[in-house]
Design a protein around this nucleic acid. Structure first.
Lengths: 341, 341
DNA sequence: GGCGTCGTCGGGAGCGCTCCCAACGACGCC
DNA sequence: GGCGTCGTTGGGAGCGCTCCCGACGACGCC
């Protein structure tokens, strides 16, 4: 049988209330009483009943991570594994528990909202990988439940943590121009995601700094998956490019595979770079130049932000944008470097 | 303000109890009363308070997935992403919520146990990626909390779901012998994991069927990571092999990279195969022969098993072993096929 | 020495739900 | 027609905790 406060109290010769005070670290307990109670707690391995606690305190110590539908494809991308990992560690540090809500299809997604929000099981929610105009986000945001998005939302009044996708893509453009690329292709990401839109827009902005523009037929949109990168690369090879910026490493690796198949040398025939900075980009042959985003950091900040919202520490929508960094590797390293700049 | 049963009852002109009966689908409610109550529930969007519910029912509707320490390296392996995904979907189907417990280091791992088990926040636990002799497993198992392991445990009295690693490795051995390999190397997995031990043992057993044995210096142990596969492959190339079985696809991909670097042709100089059946093995150049394991199925069975344990449907330790299947691809496809068999 | 104050502690109330028992009317039976 | 039975409903009790108020003794002050 599970022990309760009352039992511990009886064993230690004090009341339920005093034990509660000890458990919650309240100061108004005499040191000798406190240590007696603590001894009993230690011996018995007592831990408070979480349900009873949260019934009265209206806090559960659980946060939710929501990743909406169509993730079965996205999940091939190491991004989510990393993000989940980072958020878990942030939760561990803060002493809260993480619940995971993934939806496999539209139907599950619609069941997600009531399960997440209205059970009262959750103090707050981190949501990511939404598409623009996602009704789930609006519903969540319009509720009183604390909410933090990972990735820039397309509506106001939502707290979020994002990486500077625009700046990263701009750096990528500068880099490719810097190594002397003349005809630059882009494997884009879905423009109904803010990350996809920002990366393409940032790249265009970066080209514009050098009075270049992105030829419309040299932008082929992928869906973040490896095969989509592969297919897009084939198109770009046919259209004749000497450099390619892929909006994710996973797509860049697909592009690399297409280049191999076609006998196109990277970087000598076509320089290729990605965006994200994941394991696969270091170990590919050749290794990939990429724009590294700090996923662990993003996750940690998201948890911090959410817990601040939960505790009421700050209430107005807050946003954090983290810097990204271009990492130069073999896939854009040309012996005959640098034309104009 | 959140509504409670009492409020819904007042609005519908019935008592708390009747509303409770409707919410829980009990039959003893007159149809007209039921539909009146249901209407009010629908209009108000009422959902029961989970904490109050579980306080009295001793059920939370939450299951935990525990993945102990040193996962920061393992997480590079797509296996965990797939497993988490599968378990989430199983949970969705069953209407339970999944909480995730990962530990980043030994310290976090030791905090895991009290957090998971004793908070009472969880109806049951799925635990995976443990090493043999893991004290966490023993502590969990000795508790009254329902427990299912993914992967064969090294102690008795624990329910588990596993794939037939031995048989898969045996198939791998048969296959490599079948294509005429003479000197076969193995990139092993840690022998303090049951999966690692079973795969190596199964491979040895498969060789024995053909009166072959594994030369001790042709077994190089990796740790499931890509770099460890890369390094092990270098050793095996130096020692002179014409075929390599890697105990995971991730390590096989590392091996493939090493082969590329050394100018060793796969499959013509060295045939190479993996184990797992993940995305990367299909898109590598050449594509990898591998032993596919049904991760989604594993996850689904684990959830089923756990929920059966939670509901008391069966109480004795139960185990499920799922079949695996060898998938032949380019990395072991030789023109000059088949010597003896 | 009486009184107020403070530190410490105990116990009542109540969080929102489920479980159980009692109440009540309708019905069918002898 | 009286009685038992069944279907349906209402409300008390209690799950284990926190919050709050009041009690109690020690202490210091006038």
């Amino acid at each position: 049988m599970r022990l309760k406060l009352e039992d511990i109290g009886r064993m230690a010769g004090v009341s339920r209330s005093t034990v509660s005070r000890v458990v919650n670290g309240e100061p108004s307990v005499r040191p000798e009483v406190r240590s007696r109670v603590e001894a009993v707690i230690r011996e018995t391995g007592y831990t408070p009943n979480a349900a009873a606690r949260s019934l009265v305190s209206n806090r559960t110590g659980v946060i939710g991570l929501v990743i909406p539908s169509r993730v079965h494809s996205l999940f091939e991308d190491p991004y989510f594994a990393r993000l989940i990992q980072g958020i878990t560690f942030g939760s561990n540090r803060a002493g809260v528990t993480l619940s995971l809500f993934l939806a496999q299809n539209e139907e599950e997604e619609s069941e997600l909202y009531p399960r997440v929000v209205e059970s009262g099981f959750i103090d707050g929610v981190i949501i990511t990988a939404t598409r623009m105009g996602d009704p789930l986000v609006e519903r969540m945001a319009s509720r009183q439940i604390p909410l933090v998005m990972v990735g820039r939302p397309d509506i106001d009044e939502v707290s979020y943590v994002d990486v500077d996708n625009r700046d990263g893509a701009r750096q990528a453009a500068r880099h490719l121009v810097g190594i002397g690329a003349e005809r630059i292709g882009v494997i884009g990401a879905p423009t109904n995601t803010t990350a996809g839109a920002d990366r393409v827009a940032g790249f265009v902005a970066g080209l514009a700094e050098h009075d270049r523009r992105l030829e419309p037929d040299l932008l082929v949109e992928g869906d973040f998956s490896e095969p989509s990168g592969h297919d897009a690369m084939q198109v770009l090879i046919d259209r004749g490019v000497d450099a390619v910026f892929a909006a994710s490493d996973t797509m860049a690796l697909g592009g690399l595979r297409a280049a191999h198949e076609r006998g196109v040398a990277v970087p000598d025939d076509i320089a290729l770079m990605g965006f994200d900075g994941f394991g696969g980009s270091q170990t590919s042959v050749p290794s990939l130049t990429t724009v590294e985003q700090p996923v662990a950091h993003t996750a940690a900040r998201a948890v911090e932000l959410l817990l601040g919202l939960v505790s009421g520490e700050f209430s107005s929508p807050t946003s954090v944008v983290l810097p990204v960094e271009l990492v130069e590797r073999a896939s854009t390293h040309r012996s005959r470097t640098g034309a104009d700049a």
